[in-house]
Nucleic acid binder design. Structure first.
Length: 580
RNA sequence: GACCCCGUAGCUCAACCGGAUAGAGCAUCGGAUUUCUAAUCCGACGGUUACAGGUUCGAGUCCUGUCGGGGUCGCCA
């Protein structure tokens, strides 16, 4: 039950009633009618802009229209008052009983509270991580990994059929570099001195075990063989090893993908050719020469004729190359085939989660997706800005070249899985994020993970204490929610009632960080009520000589616990019951 | 030079498809502790939402331009 959409329906019913009376013209566009919680509590419980957005098409003054709608709402179920305010807002005040029913609903639904059907069973494909199979995951991947995973969870909860997907970039130059790097480690494993790893190859130690495994499997078979012979073999072997590494990292990070797709397999199965033929048949591919970039021109610029996709026909800046000079496909070409493939497997909504450095690539892939699916699939690309690792407010210097970059595994071991995941969602995805090792280990209010976990633990603590005071009270007790009358209690329930709306909005806007902010607010409200009980004994959750009141307050605490646990679970963070 | 993201309190950031008096935390100052875990809470201070125009009943949010920070820029992914 989403109280906001429920009363939005009431308002629309009221408008339709006025249309039926011919008080309003038919055919009004109701899509902009919204029902929101007002910022200022004196504006009631729910606030709607209906009269303001409908005034012009209805040919009325906003406040006059608001009066008509409000008059009809007065008699709506659960409405205590419908007032007109400001330029034409309709403010609804609800019966206290409505809020108590909300709490009852939360308790009844438990973990299913907040589920919705807005996705209507539609299949949606979320592609995330998709790190090159050239090494273990590092902090740079962590943010996109959490973002994609939680977005997928959010869409799942909102009634979509979610496909979580990882695209393996195993067809380009990078994996050849990887194979040559592994070859050196293979020589090393066979006792040959290899010296410094040459510039441009992967220096990481993680390739040493691969070298040993290659030596164990092939002996000295490739030692004096030409590169053309060993490269494909070593490449396949090493990619497999890297993907094993990455899958293990993902598992340690609590992430599961439903589908892993190999770029190479798309090329080898002729899927790229097929996709490009579809475009060619519609005259969207041609041979041509691109103009050099304006302003800063690369030193070695010379005009070249290339195979180009007509991206400009779909809103991109320039047409984009599909083929390298050696005849192989560019990454872009196989990506076109890949996105067509996602569509053909049943997803009309596609989401890609990328790092900020790929921002310049969005337009062309949206253009290509539109072209190759003939406008039937919509691609949304979410960009995650960089994570700056800090310690005590000072940036930590990292360089891949020196091999001292922080792996995802090290990060998890150092601060814990839940902390990493939560912190990654404490910023909007398109803002850079500071990850401070000192701060996230702190147990204080400016560490949101701790703060929210503490609220959850407190809920459990109260339940434990209550079990001592009233051994006979159980979770199954039918609590009389009418006893929850303190304004602070009621406003806590109102906050709980917003949860389904937060989930829906986060899912719709593809912004999982909203859960983190909501949970922080909820935790603050709960801590506040808790402290009130210290100051006024009558507001304690456990009231020694009043069993019925204690039972109803425990029900409220249970509601808080359910919602915090639900939000944390969505974020992939395990709610803790104790913090000691 | 072009394109994308960002610019909100001293600092780090929110602001729900455009809504009413722009909100939190930190910092600063002042309070609350015989505890259902004070690892917490309450209050005060703090704003020309970078700047200039525009759209409209209404703009931090949308459009145009300027300035500043970051990212990207023909066969890397």
């Amino acid at each position: 039950m989403n109280i906001f959409s429920q009363y939005r329906d009431e308002i629309i019913a009221a408008v339709n009633g006025l249309v039926a009376q011919s008080a309003l013209p038919a055919g009004l566009d109701l899509s902009r009618v919204a029902v929101d919680p007002p910022r200022d509590p004196s504006h009631g419980d729910l606030s709607s802009n209906a009269a303001m957005v409908l005034a012009k098409p209805a040919g009325m003054r906003p406040r006059d229209l608001a009066a008509l709608i409000a008059a009809r709402l007065e008699s709506a179920n659960g409405v205590a008052a419908a007032e007109i305010a400001g330029p034409g807002f309709i403010n609804l005040r609800l019966d206290a009983a409505v809020w108590r029913r909300c709490l009852g609903d939360i308790l009844a639904k438990g973990a299913a509270y907040g589920d919705s059907r807005v996705g209507n069973g539609k299949q949606i494909n979320v592609e995330f991580v998709s790190a090159n199979p050239t090494g273990p995951l590092h902090v740079g991947h962590a943010r996109g990994a959490v973002f994609g995973d939680v977005l997928a969870a959010l869409l799942d909860k909102s009634g979509y059929r979610v496909v979580r997907e990882y695209y393996i970039n195993d067809a380009g130059e990078q994996v050849d570099v990887l194979a040559r790097s592994a070859y050196l480690r293979y020589r090393e494993a066979l006792g040959h001195a290899i010296g410094e790893i040459p510039n441009g190859l992967y220096p990481g130690d993680y390739l040493r075990p691969v070298g040993k495994a290659l030596a164990a499997k092939f002996g000295d078979r490739w030692l004096d063989a030409p590169q053309s012979e060993w490269l494909p073999v070593l490449r396949a072997f090493t990619i497999d090893a890297m993907m094993d590494l990455i899958r293990a990292d993902l598992a340690a990070f609590g992430i599961h993908h439903d589908v892993f797709i190999s770029e190479r397999s798309l090329v080898e199965d002729g899927r790229v050719d097929a996709a490009l033929e579809m475009l060619a048949a519609r005259d969207l591919i041609y041979r041509g020469t691109l103009a050099p970039p304006k302003g800063k021109r690369p030193d070695d610029w010379e005009p070249r004729e290339q195979t180009l996709f007509r991206a400009t026909a779909f809103g991109d800046e320039v047409d984009r190359p599909l083929q390298k000079s050696d005849g192989s496909w560019t990454y872009f070409a196989s990506d076109i085939a890949y996105h067509l493939d996602k569509y053909q497997r049943g997803s009309v909504k596609l989401i890609d989660v990328w790092g900020a450095d790929h921002g310049g690539y969005i337009q062309r892939l949206k253009a290509a997706t539109e072209a190759v699916t003939e406008g039937k699939a919509a691609l949304d690309v979410k960009i995650c800005q960089i994570v700056r690792l800090m310690d005590k407010g000072e940036p930590i210097k990292m360089s891949k070249r020196a091999g001292n970059f922080v792996t995802l595994r090290e990060l998890i071991d150092e601060v814990g899985l839940g902390v990493v995941r939560f912190i990654m969602l404490t910023r909007s995805n398109d803002a850079p994020l500071d990850f401070d090792f000192t701060k996230v280990a702190e147990q204080s209010r400016d560490n949101p993970v701790f703060y929210v976990q503490y609220a959850h633990a407190r809920c459990h603590s109260v339940a434990r204490m209550a079990a001592d005071a009233f051994p006979e009270i159980t979770n199954g007790d039918a609590a009389d929610l009418d006893l929850l009358r303190d304004p602070a209690e009621v406003s806590l329930i109102k906050l709980l009632a917003q949860y389904p709306r937060v989930i829906e909005a986060a899912a719709k806007s593809h912004e999982p960080h909203r859960i983190a902010y909501y949970l922080y607010d909820l935790a603050a409200a709960f801590h506040g009520l808790w402290t009130k009980g210290r100051e006024h004994a009558g507001l304690r959750f456990i009231v020694d000589d009043n069993r019925p009141l204690t039972a109803s307050r425990l029900a409220l605490v249970r509601g808080v616990r359910i919602v915090i646990a639900s939000g944390l679970n969505l974020m992939g963070v395990v709610p803790v019951e104790e913090l000691r």
